[in-house]
Design a binder for these strands. Sequence first.
DNA 1: GAATCGCTTCAAACCGCTTTGGATGTTTGA
DNA 2: TCAAACATCCAAAGCGGTTTGAAGCGATTC
Lengths: 342, 342
Amino acid sequence: MNLKELATKLGLSPTTVSRALNGYPEVNETTRERVVAAAKRHNYHQNTRAIRLATGRAMAVGHVIPIATRHEIVNPVFADFIAGAGETYSRNDYDMVLSVVPDEDEEATYRGLKSKGNVDGVIVHAPRMNDPRIALLREIGLPFVVHGRATGTADPYCWLDVNNRRAFQRATEFLLDLGHTRIALVNGLEFMDFAIRRRTGYVDALTARGITPDPTLMASDEMTEIAGFRAATAMLALPQPPTAFLASSMISGMGVRRAVESAGRVLGRDVSVIIHDDDLSYMKNGEDVPIFTATRSSVREAGRLAAEMLLDVIAHPDAGPQQRLLEAELIIGQSTGPAPRN
Amino acid sequence: MNLKELATKLGLSPTTVSRALNGYPEVNETTRERVVAAAKRHNYHQNTRAIRLATGRAMAVGHVIPIATRHEIVNPVFADFIAGAGETYSRNDYDMVLSVVPDEDEEATYRGLKSKGNVDGVIVHAPRMNDPRIALLREIGLPFVVHGRATGTADPYCWLDVNNRRAFQRATEFLLDLGHTRIALVNGLEFMDFAIRRRTGYVDALTARGITPDPTLMASDEMTEIAGFRAATAMLALPQPPTAFLASSMISGMGVRRAVESAGRVLGRDVSVIIHDDDLSYMKNGEDVPIFTATRSSVREAGRLAAEMLLDVIAHPDAGPQQRLLEAELIIGQSTGPAPRN
DNA sequence: GAATCGCTTCAAACCGCTTTGGATGTTTGA
DNA sequence: TCAAACATCCAAAGCGGTTTGAAGCGATTC
């Protein structure tokens, strides 16, 4: 059943039927009701492929996921972000198309997406310093929103980010207020923009209190349980071990917790831990009472908002670049306490 | 730059240019080379939207992700599966479109995908017993492949699954061989098909050795760290605690491990643990030596294979339903050992 | 030398919708 | 009362490709 058939059946022209279904004003309300009823009755749905060709719009948004060397992106955070963004797209009748490509093909993929007309815009994930994708997308004229920011990029662009610097600064201050002075940072890979900002927040908070950051208390690695465990184990074996940790994620925090416990210390009493909690749907930080004290910011909500921003950019290409900074909340759990006296 | 313009520039008809680019035989090789060169030179790419309309094929595959009540699916396993499937699609110039919808809209989404022509086929995730989606998809005539199986479905359909029953049976036997007799199962939610099969394998192995399965040693819950921790903690507090655990995933295994350690027992000596390891890219079970003894099966590889199967089904709709059962390997790590003597 | 054939190429129809530019009949306003 | 304005509806031309049916043409066959 296509438009023409439906029109014939109704004794109307395709034009009128199309207009009736798309809510155009130049059609009699009685007629519109007839058309809508008939469409429902015959289970007629407009063919997406035809609409896309006729309107010149893809009604789709792309997410490019590079794999192989930089496999960091296929991570739990990504899944929740996608889920959030997907909700927005569904509500707005947009398709979400994911391209999983070897990272050396990333540029070609973006160019292809544009020239073949598969999508109307893209979300850029996991930006690094001076991320080349921003200039690329601007050059080829594909609307985009960055999830995060790319330090070093001169011209303004659309982004949505969590205030990572502030979050880690506050977390550090919170630990300082509890009397901790040897505070460790178990960070993500520091070519990622968010990791750089978190370190900055941590360092700023320390120096503001006259504490010189100690390089032996700063680790940077993938955000896995094992990496967290290793880094924390090594630090706890130092002559002057830290009394508190900042961990970059729930998972690395679990590694830190294991290190603390296998070192025979008690979490929240001997050693305090604060994690960053992305509020993942399948990895809750406790239920009533949070297990970990955490800087929390829902990555799923970020996905929803970033997608909304992108749809807005697509609808209004000439409006200036939008930017939005979300604040993380500091929630108190059971993993922090006053610094132990020595 | 579109086909017509390119054709004019070359002094050829659109027909010939189209055929040259698509590798049809009825075009002179010299001409083809001219065309291909010109296309590259003018950076011409065929417009996907036009191709889709003209050919009647969507060149896209759908993955429907229901959310809300059954949020279980937005999980880490899903992300890796998607990544694997995405690799296959990219290689074959197919798009992967994800629909994230409230689960009460799931049926409508599948119908829409079909009648609006957005996709040529779909992958069905996380099947339950008597999963209604299979009958639905057959009814509307949308090609599909199920990742997993749906016990209770009469007619044959396409699926790709891991032999969950056998995997858990072997794992249980392995523990029995080590002398364990009180073996606990920390399972996923048992309305999921894979969880049912795993329990069957576990129960079968026990009964085959004359051991009556003990209901107090079987838990079924979401596969989270906390759930694993809770279930294991409760069991370890029993008058006759288990000396070994089977955990349904890496994450719940981490919860079990924590329970073991906080009960003051040593993993691999006092208490043995076997997990099912989906070989997730960002959650490796150790590096050289696996931390956990595990039944391992790469879900990413499953994604690749399921996608290949689906593309094959789309290309040959009349071939019978394909089915493929993957075996998990049993890998020995550091979390298992002989049953302690009492 | 006419008929046939294979190799190339093309014109035109088509995919299923949107949208422009009327056409038609009805009101409205002076 | 007549022109202008309005309310509805339609024919036809796209959108950018694919595909069918036919034609041009030199070579081969009889």
